[in-house]
């Protein structure tokens, strides 16, 4: 994989880290929250498997505010 060597990790790594933060925060919130908009297990799958957009979608749509 020579592509991996040409990639500047100093630029990619911060993104991976904040993406991880987003992912972890979404999961923690999903575990703590009482009720979501739609089934909880579905949101777990979305957060786990849809990269980047999954956690954001959860926060925008899945979280029931009250």
């Amino acid at each position: 994989m020579e592509i991996l060597e040409t990639v500047n990790w100093a630029l990619i790594l911060p993104i991976l880290i904040i993406q991880l933060v987003l992912f972890v925060v979404a999961l923690i919130d999903l575990v703590k929250i009482e009720k979501t908009n739609g089934p909880k297990w579905l949101w777990a799958i979305i957060i786990l498997f849809v990269n980047i957009i999954g956690p954001i979608l959860y926060f925008v749509i899945g979280r029931r505010n009250h």
Partner: peptide, 19 residues
């Protein structure tokens, strides 16, 4: 968690195109 996910989303949006 708005203070976490909204800034992160904006950062990702901003960084995506240059990369």
């Amino acid at each position: 968690f708005k203070w976490i996910w909204v800034p992160i989303t904006f950062i990702l949006l901003g960084v995506m195109d240059p990369l």
